[in-house]
Design a protein around this nucleic acid. Structure first.
Lengths: 245, 245
DNA sequence: TACTTGACTCGAACGATGTTCGCCATTAAA
DNA sequence: TTTAATGGCGAACATCGTTCGAGTCAAGTA
Protein backbone atom coordinates (compact mmCIF):
# COMPACT_ATOMS: atom_id res chain seq x y z
CA UNK A 1 0.00 0.00 0.00
CA UNK A 2 1.53 3.29 -1.05
CA UNK A 3 2.00 6.04 1.53
CA UNK A 4 -0.32 8.99 1.49
CA UNK A 5 1.64 12.27 1.52
CA UNK A 6 0.99 14.63 4.43
CA UNK A 7 -1.05 17.69 3.46
CA UNK A 8 1.10 20.78 2.92
CA UNK A 9 -0.42 22.66 5.86
CA UNK A 10 0.73 20.11 8.39
CA UNK A 11 4.21 20.22 9.78
CA UNK A 12 5.71 16.80 9.97
CA UNK A 13 8.44 15.72 12.22
CA UNK A 14 11.77 15.31 10.57
CA UNK A 15 12.31 11.74 9.56
CA UNK A 16 15.59 11.78 7.79
CA UNK A 17 17.42 8.86 6.41
CA UNK A 18 18.54 6.39 9.02
CA UNK A 19 21.23 7.97 11.05
CA UNK A 20 23.45 6.76 13.83
CA UNK A 21 21.75 6.99 17.18
CA UNK A 22 23.11 9.91 19.12
CA UNK A 23 25.61 9.27 21.84
CA UNK A 24 27.95 11.27 23.91
CA UNK A 25 30.93 10.01 21.93
CA UNK A 26 29.33 11.04 18.64
CA UNK A 27 28.63 14.49 20.00
CA UNK A 28 32.14 14.93 21.31
CA UNK A 29 33.61 13.77 18.03
CA UNK A 30 31.46 16.22 16.10
CA UNK A 31 32.49 19.02 18.43
CA UNK A 32 36.12 18.13 17.93
CA UNK A 33 35.77 18.24 14.16
CA UNK A 34 34.19 21.66 14.31
CA UNK A 35 36.84 22.91 16.75
CA UNK A 36 39.54 21.72 14.43
CA UNK A 37 38.06 23.30 11.34
CA UNK A 38 36.45 26.44 12.68
CA UNK A 39 37.74 27.17 16.18
CA UNK A 40 36.20 27.09 19.61
CA UNK A 41 33.57 29.79 19.08
CA UNK A 42 32.06 27.76 16.29
CA UNK A 43 31.40 24.90 18.68
CA UNK A 44 27.87 25.99 19.49
CA UNK A 45 25.14 23.56 20.37
CA UNK A 46 23.42 24.43 17.14
CA UNK A 47 26.53 23.91 15.07
CA UNK A 48 27.28 20.56 16.69
CA UNK A 49 23.70 19.46 16.22
CA UNK A 50 23.80 20.52 12.61
CA UNK A 51 26.94 18.47 12.11
CA UNK A 52 25.00 15.47 13.38
CA UNK A 53 21.86 16.16 11.41
CA UNK A 54 19.69 16.94 14.40
CA UNK A 55 18.63 19.87 16.57
CA UNK A 56 20.39 21.39 19.55
CA UNK A 57 17.81 20.17 22.02
CA UNK A 58 18.73 16.57 21.22
CA UNK A 59 22.19 17.05 22.65
CA UNK A 60 20.86 17.66 26.13
CA UNK A 61 19.92 14.04 26.55
CA UNK A 62 23.62 13.25 26.46
CA UNK A 63 25.44 16.21 27.94
CA UNK A 64 24.36 18.39 30.77
CA UNK A 65 25.17 21.65 29.04
CA UNK A 66 27.69 23.25 26.78
CA UNK A 67 30.25 23.49 29.53
CA UNK A 68 30.23 19.75 29.95
CA UNK A 69 30.54 19.26 26.23
CA UNK A 70 33.58 21.50 26.08
CA UNK A 71 35.15 19.70 29.03
CA UNK A 72 34.65 16.40 27.26
CA UNK A 73 36.19 17.73 24.08
CA UNK A 74 39.10 19.09 26.07
CA UNK A 75 39.81 15.75 27.66
CA UNK A 76 39.51 14.08 24.29
CA UNK A 77 42.23 16.39 22.98
CA UNK A 78 44.39 15.52 25.95
CA UNK A 79 44.05 11.90 24.91
CA UNK A 80 46.59 12.63 22.24
CA UNK A 81 49.33 13.42 24.73
CA UNK A 82 51.70 10.51 25.24
CA UNK A 83 53.22 9.95 28.66
CA UNK A 84 56.48 8.12 29.24
CA UNK A 85 57.55 5.62 31.86
CA UNK A 86 59.64 7.49 34.41
CA UNK A 87 63.42 7.31 34.09
CA UNK A 88 64.77 8.73 37.32
CA UNK A 89 68.13 9.65 35.93
CA UNK A 90 66.60 11.97 33.35
CA UNK A 91 63.42 12.99 35.07
CA UNK A 92 63.84 16.67 34.34
CA UNK A 93 64.25 16.10 30.63
CA UNK A 94 61.24 13.84 30.66
CA UNK A 95 59.13 16.42 32.34
CA UNK A 96 60.21 18.99 29.79
CA UNK A 97 59.36 16.65 26.93
CA UNK A 98 55.96 15.94 28.42
CA UNK A 99 55.14 19.63 28.76
CA UNK A 100 56.41 20.35 25.27
CA UNK A 101 54.18 17.56 24.01
CA UNK A 102 51.20 18.99 25.85
CA UNK A 103 51.87 22.41 24.38
CA UNK A 104 52.11 20.95 20.91
CA UNK A 105 48.83 19.11 21.25
CA UNK A 106 46.96 22.12 22.64
CA UNK A 107 48.30 24.36 19.91
CA UNK A 108 47.24 21.83 17.32
CA UNK A 109 43.60 22.22 18.29
CA UNK A 110 42.64 25.83 17.72
CA UNK A 111 41.84 27.54 21.02
CA UNK A 112 40.84 24.50 23.06
CA UNK A 113 43.34 25.59 25.71
CA UNK A 114 40.80 28.20 26.71
CA UNK A 115 38.70 25.42 28.14
CA UNK A 116 41.65 24.17 30.17
CA UNK A 117 41.98 27.61 31.72
CA UNK A 118 38.47 27.52 33.03
CA UNK A 119 38.23 24.03 34.35
CA UNK A 120 39.62 21.76 37.00
CA UNK A 121 41.16 18.80 35.15
CA UNK A 122 39.03 15.83 36.12
CA UNK A 123 38.68 13.91 32.85
CA UNK A 124 40.41 10.53 32.49
CA UNK A 125 43.17 11.87 30.27
CA UNK A 126 43.86 14.92 32.37
CA UNK A 127 44.20 12.67 35.38
CA UNK A 128 46.41 10.27 33.47
CA UNK A 129 48.79 13.07 32.57
CA UNK A 130 48.78 14.55 36.04
CA UNK A 131 49.60 11.14 37.48
CA UNK A 132 52.44 10.74 34.99
CA UNK A 133 53.88 14.12 35.90
CA UNK A 134 53.76 13.17 39.53
CA UNK A 135 55.44 9.86 38.78
CA UNK A 136 58.26 11.56 36.91
CA UNK A 137 58.88 14.16 39.54
CA UNK A 138 58.69 11.78 42.48
CA UNK A 139 61.04 9.38 40.70
CA UNK A 140 63.43 12.29 40.34
CA UNK A 141 63.38 13.10 44.02
CA UNK A 142 61.15 16.15 43.93
CA UNK A 143 59.56 16.63 47.35
CA UNK A 144 55.86 15.63 47.11
CA UNK A 145 54.63 18.99 48.26
CA UNK A 146 56.64 20.71 45.55
CA UNK A 147 55.53 18.22 42.92
CA UNK A 148 51.89 18.88 43.74
CA UNK A 149 52.35 22.62 43.36
CA UNK A 150 54.28 22.10 40.17
CA UNK A 151 51.50 20.22 38.48
CA UNK A 152 49.24 23.11 39.16
CA UNK A 153 51.61 25.72 37.85
CA UNK A 154 52.73 23.81 34.79
CA UNK A 155 49.14 23.17 33.83
CA UNK A 156 48.37 26.84 34.16
CA UNK A 157 51.42 27.79 32.16
CA UNK A 158 50.94 25.48 29.23
CA UNK A 159 47.24 26.28 28.92
CA UNK A 160 47.65 30.03 29.13
CA UNK A 161 50.52 30.03 26.65
CA UNK A 162 48.63 27.89 24.16
CA UNK A 163 45.54 30.01 24.57
CA UNK A 164 47.41 33.22 23.90
CA UNK A 165 49.03 31.69 20.85
CA UNK A 166 45.66 30.57 19.58
CA UNK A 167 44.27 34.08 19.68
CA UNK A 168 46.56 35.14 16.89
CA UNK A 169 45.40 32.19 14.86
CA UNK A 170 41.79 33.17 15.51
CA UNK A 171 42.44 36.65 14.22
CA UNK A 172 44.15 35.21 11.21
CA UNK A 173 41.25 32.93 10.48
CA UNK A 174 38.83 35.80 10.82
CA UNK A 175 40.91 37.91 8.47
CA UNK A 176 40.78 35.41 5.67
CA UNK A 177 44.44 35.94 4.93
CA UNK A 178 47.03 33.22 4.83
CA UNK A 179 49.05 32.74 7.97
CA UNK A 180 52.29 34.31 6.82
CA UNK A 181 50.93 37.51 5.40
CA UNK A 182 48.57 37.96 8.31
CA UNK A 183 51.32 37.55 10.88
CA UNK A 184 53.62 39.82 8.94
CA UNK A 185 51.01 42.53 8.80
CA UNK A 186 49.74 42.04 12.35
CA UNK A 187 53.13 42.21 14.01
CA UNK A 188 54.12 45.00 11.66
CA UNK A 189 51.26 47.03 13.07
CA UNK A 190 52.29 46.26 16.63
CA UNK A 191 55.83 47.33 15.90
CA UNK A 192 54.54 50.49 14.26
CA UNK A 193 52.53 51.21 17.36
CA UNK A 194 55.51 50.78 19.62
CA UNK A 195 57.60 53.04 17.39
CA UNK A 196 54.96 55.70 17.66
CA UNK A 197 55.14 55.83 21.45
CA UNK A 198 56.50 59.01 23.07
CA UNK A 199 60.05 58.27 24.14
CA UNK A 200 59.83 60.61 27.13
CA UNK A 201 57.03 58.57 28.67
CA UNK A 202 58.23 55.12 27.71
CA UNK A 203 61.99 55.35 27.27
CA UNK A 204 62.75 51.71 27.99
CA UNK A 205 60.04 50.31 25.80
CA UNK A 206 61.04 52.43 22.86
CA UNK A 207 64.69 51.53 23.31
CA UNK A 208 63.90 47.79 23.40
CA UNK A 209 61.46 47.46 20.55
CA UNK A 210 63.67 45.11 18.61
CA UNK A 211 64.05 42.79 21.57
CA UNK A 212 60.35 42.97 22.37
CA UNK A 213 59.33 42.06 18.84
CA UNK A 214 61.96 39.50 18.06
CA UNK A 215 61.00 36.25 19.66
CA UNK A 216 58.37 33.95 18.27
CA UNK A 217 55.82 32.04 20.28
CA UNK A 218 57.89 28.89 20.64
CA UNK A 219 60.88 30.75 21.92
CA UNK A 220 58.74 32.57 24.49
CA UNK A 221 57.15 29.37 25.64
CA UNK A 222 60.45 27.58 26.02
CA UNK A 223 62.03 30.50 27.82
CA UNK A 224 59.32 30.44 30.45
CA UNK A 225 59.31 26.67 30.70
CA UNK A 226 63.03 26.74 31.18
CA UNK A 227 62.65 29.17 34.07
CA UNK A 228 60.03 27.00 35.74
CA UNK A 229 62.04 23.81 35.33
CA UNK A 230 65.27 25.36 36.50
CA UNK A 231 63.47 26.53 39.56
CA UNK A 232 62.03 23.09 40.07
CA UNK A 233 65.44 21.52 39.78
CA UNK A 234 66.76 23.85 42.44
CA UNK A 235 64.11 22.50 44.79
CA UNK A 236 65.54 19.03 44.30
CA UNK A 237 69.02 20.24 45.03
CA UNK A 238 67.73 22.01 48.09
CA UNK A 239 65.99 18.89 49.31
CA UNK A 240 69.14 16.87 48.84
CA UNK A 241 70.75 15.92 45.56
CA UNK A 242 69.81 12.40 44.55
CA UNK A 243 69.95 12.94 40.78
CA UNK A 244 71.51 15.24 38.27
CA UNK A 245 69.87 18.64 38.62
CA UNK B 1 1.91 77.66 28.12
CA UNK B 2 1.49 74.21 29.58
CA UNK B 3 2.69 71.22 27.61
CA UNK B 4 0.11 69.05 25.90
CA UNK B 5 0.69 65.37 26.73
CA UNK B 6 1.37 63.03 23.81
CA UNK B 7 -1.55 60.77 23.02
CA UNK B 8 -1.13 57.28 24.44
CA UNK B 9 -0.94 55.59 21.03
CA UNK B 10 2.16 57.55 20.03
CA UNK B 11 5.55 56.38 21.13
CA UNK B 12 7.62 59.25 22.25
CA UNK B 13 11.31 59.37 22.38
CA UNK B 14 12.72 59.11 25.83
CA UNK B 15 13.47 62.52 27.26
CA UNK B 16 14.59 61.82 30.74
CA UNK B 17 15.75 64.29 33.25
CA UNK B 18 18.90 66.08 32.26
CA UNK B 19 21.75 63.67 32.40
CA UNK B 20 25.43 63.94 31.89
CA UNK B 21 26.37 63.83 28.26
CA UNK B 22 27.81 60.46 27.39
CA UNK B 23 31.52 60.14 27.05
CA UNK B 24 34.02 57.37 26.82
CA UNK B 25 35.15 57.99 30.38
CA UNK B 26 31.60 57.77 31.68
CA UNK B 27 31.08 54.50 29.86
CA UNK B 28 34.29 53.00 31.15
CA UNK B 29 33.51 54.08 34.69
CA UNK B 30 30.06 52.51 34.47
CA UNK B 31 31.57 49.31 33.13
CA UNK B 32 34.05 49.26 35.97
CA UNK B 33 31.31 49.64 38.57
CA UNK B 34 29.38 46.76 37.06
CA UNK B 35 32.50 44.61 36.85
CA UNK B 36 33.22 45.28 40.49
CA UNK B 37 29.72 44.49 41.67
CA UNK B 38 28.62 41.73 39.30
CA UNK B 39 31.64 40.35 37.45
CA UNK B 40 32.80 40.46 33.88
CA UNK B 41 29.89 38.62 32.30
CA UNK B 42 27.54 41.25 33.61
CA UNK B 43 29.39 43.92 31.65
CA UNK B 44 27.13 43.73 28.63
CA UNK B 45 26.43 46.70 26.42
CA UNK B 46 22.85 46.67 27.61
CA UNK B 47 23.83 46.55 31.27
CA UNK B 48 26.32 49.38 30.88
CA UNK B 49 23.78 51.44 28.99
CA UNK B 50 21.22 50.78 31.66
CA UNK B 51 23.66 51.97 34.30
CA UNK B 52 23.91 55.21 32.36
CA UNK B 53 20.21 55.59 31.73
CA UNK B 54 20.42 55.10 27.99
CA UNK B 55 20.28 52.34 25.38
CA UNK B 56 23.09 50.12 24.13
CA UNK B 57 23.21 51.71 20.69
CA UNK B 58 24.26 55.00 22.26
CA UNK B 59 27.54 53.51 23.41
CA UNK B 60 28.72 52.90 19.87
CA UNK B 61 29.27 56.58 19.28
CA UNK B 62 32.04 56.38 21.87
CA UNK B 63 33.53 52.90 21.68
CA UNK B 64 34.07 50.79 18.63
CA UNK B 65 32.64 47.63 20.13
CA UNK B 66 32.52 45.65 23.32
CA UNK B 67 36.07 44.47 22.92
CA UNK B 68 37.34 48.01 22.96
CA UNK B 69 35.25 48.78 26.00
CA UNK B 70 36.70 45.83 27.89
CA UNK B 71 40.22 46.84 26.87
CA UNK B 72 39.60 50.31 28.21
CA UNK B 73 38.23 48.97 31.48
CA UNK B 74 41.24 46.67 31.76
CA UNK B 75 43.67 49.52 31.37
CA UNK B 76 41.69 51.55 33.87
CA UNK B 77 42.13 48.76 36.40
CA UNK B 78 45.84 48.69 35.68
CA UNK B 79 45.89 52.35 36.59
CA UNK B 80 45.73 51.25 40.19
CA UNK B 81 49.08 49.50 40.04
CA UNK B 82 51.87 51.61 41.51
CA UNK B 83 55.34 51.37 40.01
CA UNK B 84 58.52 52.19 41.88
CA UNK B 85 61.65 54.04 40.91
CA UNK B 86 64.29 51.42 40.18
CA UNK B 87 66.78 50.59 42.92
CA UNK B 88 69.48 48.54 41.24
CA UNK B 89 70.70 46.93 44.42
CA UNK B 90 67.31 45.37 45.10
CA UNK B 91 65.93 45.05 41.61
CA UNK B 92 64.74 41.50 42.08
CA UNK B 93 62.75 42.33 45.16
CA UNK B 94 61.26 45.32 43.41
CA UNK B 95 60.16 43.20 40.50
CA UNK B 96 58.59 40.73 42.86
CA UNK B 97 56.73 43.48 44.66
CA UNK B 98 55.49 44.92 41.39
CA UNK B 99 54.15 41.58 40.22
CA UNK B 100 52.56 40.91 43.59
CA UNK B 101 50.91 44.33 43.35
CA UNK B 102 49.64 43.56 39.88
CA UNK B 103 48.23 40.25 41.07
CA UNK B 104 46.52 41.94 43.98
CA UNK B 105 44.92 44.54 41.73
CA UNK B 106 43.71 42.03 39.18
CA UNK B 107 42.28 39.82 41.86
CA UNK B 108 40.51 42.80 43.36
CA UNK B 109 38.47 43.29 40.20
CA UNK B 110 36.46 40.14 39.64
CA UNK B 111 37.60 38.40 36.48
CA UNK B 112 39.04 41.34 34.62
CA UNK B 113 42.25 39.35 34.15
CA UNK B 114 40.43 37.41 31.49
CA UNK B 115 40.61 40.50 29.30
CA UNK B 116 44.37 40.70 29.85
CA UNK B 117 44.69 37.15 28.55
CA UNK B 118 43.09 38.04 25.27
CA UNK B 119 44.71 41.31 24.50
CA UNK B 120 48.06 42.82 23.65
CA UNK B 121 48.71 45.43 26.33
CA UNK B 122 48.67 48.76 24.54
CA UNK B 123 46.80 51.04 26.92
CA UNK B 124 48.66 53.85 28.69
CA UNK B 125 48.80 52.06 32.01
CA UNK B 126 49.84 48.73 30.59
CA UNK B 127 52.67 50.49 28.79
CA UNK B 128 53.62 52.39 31.93
CA UNK B 129 53.95 49.18 33.87
CA UNK B 130 55.83 47.38 31.12
CA UNK B 131 58.25 50.28 30.92
CA UNK B 132 58.73 50.16 34.68
CA UNK B 133 59.43 46.45 34.62
CA UNK B 134 61.98 47.00 31.92
CA UNK B 135 63.57 49.80 33.91
CA UNK B 136 63.86 47.61 37.00
CA UNK B 137 65.35 44.69 35.17
CA UNK B 138 67.75 46.71 33.09
CA UNK B 139 68.89 48.55 36.20
CA UNK B 140 69.55 45.18 37.76
CA UNK B 141 71.73 44.04 34.90
CA UNK B 142 69.28 41.71 33.20
CA UNK B 143 70.28 41.33 29.55
CA UNK B 144 67.78 43.28 27.41
CA UNK B 145 66.76 40.26 25.40
CA UNK B 146 65.94 38.38 28.58
CA UNK B 147 64.10 41.34 30.04
CA UNK B 148 61.90 41.58 26.99
CA UNK B 149 60.98 37.93 27.18
CA UNK B 150 60.39 38.25 30.88
CA UNK B 151 57.81 40.97 30.52
CA UNK B 152 55.88 38.72 28.23
CA UNK B 153 56.02 35.75 30.52
CA UNK B 154 55.29 37.59 33.73
CA UNK B 155 52.31 39.28 32.14
CA UNK B 156 51.01 35.93 31.02
CA UNK B 157 51.59 34.41 34.42
CA UNK B 158 49.95 37.06 36.53
CA UNK B 159 46.92 37.30 34.25
CA UNK B 160 46.34 33.60 33.98
CA UNK B 161 46.73 33.07 37.71
CA UNK B 162 44.34 35.89 38.55
CA UNK B 163 41.88 34.64 35.99
CA UNK B 164 41.89 31.13 37.41
CA UNK B 165 41.45 32.50 40.87
CA UNK B 166 38.54 34.59 39.74
CA UNK B 167 36.68 31.60 38.38
CA UNK B 168 36.18 30.24 41.87
CA UNK B 169 34.83 33.58 42.93
CA UNK B 170 32.45 33.54 40.00
CA UNK B 171 31.11 30.18 41.02
CA UNK B 172 30.74 31.41 44.54
CA UNK B 173 28.84 34.46 43.41
CA UNK B 174 26.57 32.32 41.29
CA UNK B 175 25.93 29.98 44.19
CA UNK B 176 24.70 32.72 46.46
CA UNK B 177 26.66 31.26 49.36
CA UNK B 178 29.14 33.19 51.41
CA UNK B 179 32.74 32.78 50.44
CA UNK B 180 33.84 30.54 53.26
CA UNK B 181 31.10 27.98 53.11
CA UNK B 182 31.23 27.89 49.32
CA UNK B 183 34.96 27.27 49.25
CA UNK B 184 34.71 24.65 51.96
CA UNK B 185 32.04 22.79 50.07
CA UNK B 186 33.60 23.23 46.64
CA UNK B 187 37.02 22.00 47.60
CA UNK B 188 35.44 19.30 49.72
CA UNK B 189 33.80 17.97 46.59
CA UNK B 190 37.06 18.06 44.69
CA UNK B 191 38.81 16.14 47.44
CA UNK B 192 35.97 13.65 47.48
CA UNK B 193 36.39 13.19 43.76
CA UNK B 194 40.09 12.56 44.10
CA UNK B 195 39.52 10.05 46.88
CA UNK B 196 37.11 8.17 44.68
CA UNK B 197 39.69 7.63 41.94
CA UNK B 198 40.85 4.06 41.29
CA UNK B 199 44.25 3.68 42.89
CA UNK B 200 45.44 1.21 40.28
CA UNK B 201 45.04 3.77 37.48
CA UNK B 202 46.16 6.84 39.37
CA UNK B 203 48.47 5.65 42.14
CA UNK B 204 50.47 8.85 42.47
CA UNK B 205 47.47 11.15 42.48
CA UNK B 206 45.68 9.14 45.11
CA UNK B 207 48.79 9.00 47.26
CA UNK B 208 49.29 12.77 47.09
CA UNK B 209 45.78 14.02 47.65
CA UNK B 210 46.69 15.89 50.80
CA UNK B 211 49.53 17.70 49.08
CA UNK B 212 47.40 18.43 46.02
CA UNK B 213 44.65 19.95 48.07
CA UNK B 214 46.63 21.77 50.66
CA UNK B 215 47.87 24.99 49.15
CA UNK B 216 45.72 28.07 48.72
CA UNK B 217 45.75 30.36 45.74
CA UNK B 218 48.28 32.79 47.16
CA UNK B 219 50.75 30.06 47.96
CA UNK B 220 50.44 28.62 44.47
CA UNK B 221 50.92 32.01 42.88
CA UNK B 222 53.97 32.82 44.96
CA UNK B 223 55.48 29.40 44.35
CA UNK B 224 55.31 29.91 40.60
CA UNK B 225 56.48 33.49 40.79
CA UNK B 226 59.40 32.39 42.87
CA UNK B 227 60.38 29.87 40.21
CA UNK B 228 60.21 32.47 37.47
CA UNK B 229 62.20 35.03 39.43
CA UNK B 230 64.82 32.56 40.51
CA UNK B 231 65.26 31.60 36.92
CA UNK B 232 65.51 35.22 35.95
CA UNK B 233 68.15 35.86 38.57
CA UNK B 234 70.18 33.00 37.20
CA UNK B 235 70.23 34.76 33.84
CA UNK B 236 71.84 37.74 35.49
CA UNK B 237 74.45 35.57 37.14
CA UNK B 238 75.06 33.89 33.81
CA UNK B 239 75.47 37.23 32.06
CA UNK B 240 77.96 38.36 34.68
CA UNK B 241 77.27 39.27 38.26
CA UNK B 242 76.85 43.02 38.67
CA UNK B 243 74.36 42.92 41.52
CA UNK B 244 73.16 40.60 44.22
CA UNK B 245 71.33 37.70 42.54
C1' DT C 1 -2.36 -8.40 24.18
C1' DA C 2 -2.79 -3.86 26.00
C1' DC C 3 -1.05 -0.56 28.87
C1' DT C 4 2.65 1.88 31.28
C1' DT C 5 7.09 3.65 31.82
C1' DG C 6 11.48 5.38 30.62
C1' DA C 7 14.58 7.23 27.39
C1' DC C 8 15.47 9.70 23.47
C1' DT C 9 14.25 13.09 19.86
C1' DC C 10 13.06 17.58 18.30
C1' DG C 11 10.19 21.90 17.01
C1' DA C 12 8.99 25.98 19.12
C1' DA C 13 9.84 29.32 22.17
C1' DC C 14 12.12 32.01 25.78
C1' DG C 15 15.52 35.18 27.42
C1' DA C 16 19.76 37.06 26.44
C1' DT C 17 23.61 39.08 23.68
C1' DG C 18 26.33 42.30 20.21
C1' DT C 19 25.49 45.11 16.66
C1' DT C 20 23.42 47.77 12.74
C1' DC C 21 20.11 50.76 10.57
C1' DG C 22 17.64 54.70 10.08
C1' DC C 23 15.40 58.42 12.12
C1' DC C 24 15.51 62.37 15.33
C1' DA C 25 17.50 66.33 17.74
C1' DT C 26 20.96 69.66 18.46
C1' DT C 27 24.67 72.54 17.31
C1' DA C 28 27.83 74.71 14.35
C1' DA C 29 29.12 76.26 9.90
C1' DA C 30 28.10 78.05 5.37
C1' DT D 1 17.85 80.08 6.39
C1' DT D 2 19.82 75.94 5.00
C1' DT D 3 23.17 72.44 5.33
C1' DA D 4 26.36 69.43 7.57
C1' DA D 5 28.13 67.01 11.42
C1' DT D 6 27.60 64.65 15.60
C1' DG D 7 25.48 62.22 19.10
C1' DG D 8 21.45 59.75 20.76
C1' DC D 9 18.24 55.93 20.54
C1' DG D 10 14.23 52.69 19.24
C1' DA D 11 13.60 48.86 16.50
C1' DA D 12 15.24 45.09 14.46
C1' DC D 13 18.46 41.50 13.06
C1' DA D 14 21.14 37.36 13.76
C1' DT D 15 22.86 34.37 17.00
C1' DC D 16 23.28 31.94 21.24
C1' DG D 17 22.18 28.44 25.36
C1' DT D 18 18.52 26.34 27.20
C1' DT D 19 13.80 24.71 28.46
C1' DC D 20 9.22 22.98 27.55
C1' DG D 21 6.17 19.86 25.92
C1' DA D 22 4.76 16.71 22.53
C1' DG D 23 5.98 12.64 19.85
C1' DT D 24 8.25 8.13 19.12
C1' DC D 25 10.08 3.81 20.32
C1' DA D 26 11.42 -0.02 23.05
C1' DA D 27 11.11 -2.59 27.15
C1' DG D 28 8.65 -4.11 31.08
C1' DT D 29 4.42 -5.34 33.50
C1' DA D 30 -0.27 -6.76 34.31
Amino acid sequence: MTDIPAPPWRKTRRTNAPRAVLSRDLIVAAGLRILDAEGLDAVSMRRVAQELGTGPASLYAHVENKEELLDLIYDEVMGEIQVPEPEPERWLEQLRELIMEASRVFRAYADIAKVGLATIPTGPNALRIADAQLAIMLAGGVPPKVAALMIDRLGLYVCSDAYEGSLYLNRQRASGSDLESFMGEFFGQIEEFYRSLPVDRFPNLVAQIDNLMEAGGTERFEFGLDLLLRGLASHVEAAGPTTKG
